[in-house]
Amino acid sequence: MRAVRWLIAIVVIASVCWLFPLFHVMSLKTATAEKVAATFNATQFAEMFWTNQLPTALEKTVTAKTLLPAFQSDAAAAKKKFSRSVGLSEGYFYFLRGEGKILSVSDDEVSLAVTEGSTNAEVSLQTGLIFGNALRDGTGLLSANDYPNSQDFNDISAALNHIVETRTLPKLREQAKVGAKISFVGCAEVGDEATDLKPLKVIPFQTKTE
């Protein structure tokens, strides 16, 4: 009787496993290849973003000449009109472009005046190590909701920062001379409480000196 019970149990379990398979057997090679293909490659993504998406977004920038006086006269209105924020973040991002005259050059920044005749640093292009998410979040082209894994989204920031550190900044450091004219496109992150943007710390995407 006991043997029959066991037999019935085995038959039932085998049938369930046949109807609803517990697993599929794959070769180690195929599984590894599939896993690599499915893994998000932030470096590759950042490269595509840099080459394809970013150039098309440049028209969304606000000029420094517009932003700085607007912020000076009504910070709240300027923030509302020109900035964007992400999630619960207390910081605001600006995607801007401008041109000005280089006033000073140090190890980690290039200071410039963007208003005609000004002798005060109004914009500071950051040339040291880059941290944070200004480049990723400032353009408004990428949304965290498109990435199921927040780690992937964070990796994009690191990859974009790396591109700027290795491509844009060495050229800028080399060409930046006091008195030279420079044009730039970049992103800036400003704290919620800020009432004065000057000098606005900008992480540059592109720079061109004359």
Binding site: F20, L22, S27, A31
Partner: peptide, 16 residues
């Protein structure tokens, strides 16, 4: 999944 390197296979589990 569960990699069985000795046999060169991976048991890719279904949700069930």
């Amino acid at each position: 999944g569960l990699a069985l390197k000795v046999f060169g296979v991976v048991l890719q589990f279904t949700p069930f």
